[in-house]
């Protein structure tokens, strides 16, 4: 395939991914928006008004960036994991396997699809947040960069999960037992400075903490940790995961009998 053909193949995969999550929007776009409205009402307004401030911010302004990040993470991940697993499960992946599309284009196409959903939901949730509170942007570059990188990383992770999955249970295990706890414990709802030394040190092993803090820094200028760490960690993790996903596709043993 020449470059133009590769571009067409990439664009075809991306278009199909976007069509998929738009077609089933009551499953893909609506739930995160409703969940986030509930979070804003309960944690932001009802309980938040009693908490007062957290790390020097009104509570609603403290949680809003974390909640936005949380929806970007879960939506990027679940878009790729369910779409790619569905492709495998229906044997629909054979359409790609009989075609000359190189694996790295398949990978990029699915990642781009996951990012479109993750960022799309992120924008919707941000608009919701603006209804409940207002925030100025401290650093647009940091904000945009960390959202893009986080969405990228979790899209790749979702693809790896889908390659390994052999049943529908396998695609919900990681989101339920790994992603959700890590997000809840990742400084979305509280500043880790509230924790004792031990739990604060433990929290430092949670990658989501770094992303949430970098994002919060981008918006409000306030962070619990050095954001250089955030960028290096997410960047490195994305590269490693990308190469691993590519290796799995090239090997093909989980896609072909």
């Amino acid at each position: 395939m020449n470059n133009k053909e590769k571009w067409i193949a990439f664009y075809t995969i991306l278009r199909r991914e976007i069509r998929r999550f738009m077609r089933i929007w009551p499953q893909t776009l609506l739930p995160p928006v409703i969940t986030m409205i509930l979070y804003f009402v309960i944690f932001g307004q009802l309980i938040g008004s009693r908490i007062g401030s957290m790390a020097g911010l009104p509570y609603i302004q403290f949680v809003a960036p974390g909640l936005i990040m949380m929806s970007v993470i879960t939506n990027s991940y679940s878009n790729v994991v369910s779409s790619f697993f569905g492709l495998k499960f229906q044997r629909n992946i054979e359409e790609l396997l009989v075609s000359p599309v190189p694996n790295w284009i398949i990978l990029l196409g699915y990642i781009a699809g996951g990012m479109c959903r993750g960022l799309g939901v992120g924008i919707l949730v941000t608009l919701m947040a603006l209804y409940f509170t207002s925030f100025s942007i401290h650093s647009l570059t940091v904000t945009v960069a960390i959202v893009l990188m986080t969405s990228l990383m979790f899209s790749i992770a979702g693809l790896i999960n889908a390659i390994f999955a052999t049943s529908f249970d396998d695609i919900s295990i990681i989101p339920t037992f790994v992603l959700t706890p890590l997000t809840y414990l990742g400084g979305v709802f509280y500043s880790i400075n509230l924790l004792g030394d031990f739990w604060r040190d433990v929290s430092m092993f949670n990658p989501i903490l770094y992303m949430v803090n970098a994002f919060r820094f981008g918006i409000s200028g306030i962070t619990d940790i050095d954001i250089i760490w955030s960028f290096s960690m997410v960047g490195l993790a994305s590269i490693i995961l990308f190469l691993y996903a590519l290796y799995l596709l090239e090997k093909g043993s989980r896609l072909r009998s």
């Binding site: 067409i8 193949a9 075809t12 199909r16 069509r19 000359p100």
Partner: peptide, 14 residues
């Protein structure tokens, strides 16, 4: 119609 156009896209056909 979408199935056919998608498959063509995988072969790099406009």
């Amino acid at each position: 119609i979408d199935i056919l156009i998608t498959q063509a896209g995988y072969f790099g056909i406009k």
